[in-house]
Amino acid sequence: MIEEQTIIAVMPETLAAETRKMKEQGYRLVQICVTRLGEELQLDYSFDLNRRFVNFRFRLPKTGARVPSVSGIYWCAFTYENEISDLFGVQVDGNVLDFKGTFYKTAMKHPFIQDAAPAPVPAPAKPGDQ
């Protein structure tokens, strides 16, 4: 075991209040991460204080997911929030520096919630064909 990791379930409504509490205790925002679990998205907000790792977690439906922004509390959250809105289509309300979907220049909209395309890996070229 490398380290203990505390995972706390929160609600999207209480997220801002809980995050503010973390900031008051001196925690650092480590990351915001979204995981697609079938038709749901799992959101993780990770914090760290002197290598004590705390993680807030809640779930949202895949389509029409909305979360309040925490960038008013931790300003640095704007990068993560733009990332989740560009790659996962999560609507973030009140982001202080909203790139409106241009933070990542991807060929496809919200690529990380799309189903895997069928076998894009090309088969090895057969000898002789160019």
Binding site: T102, F103, Y104, P111, F112, V121
Partner: peptide, 17 residues
């Protein structure tokens, strides 16, 4: 105002393959 994303490679998605 920073802006990144010029060379996003989507390696995180590659775990599915």
């Amino acid at each position: 105002v920073p802006s990144i994303g010029f060379i996003h490679r989507g390696l995180e998605k590659l775990v599915e393959k």
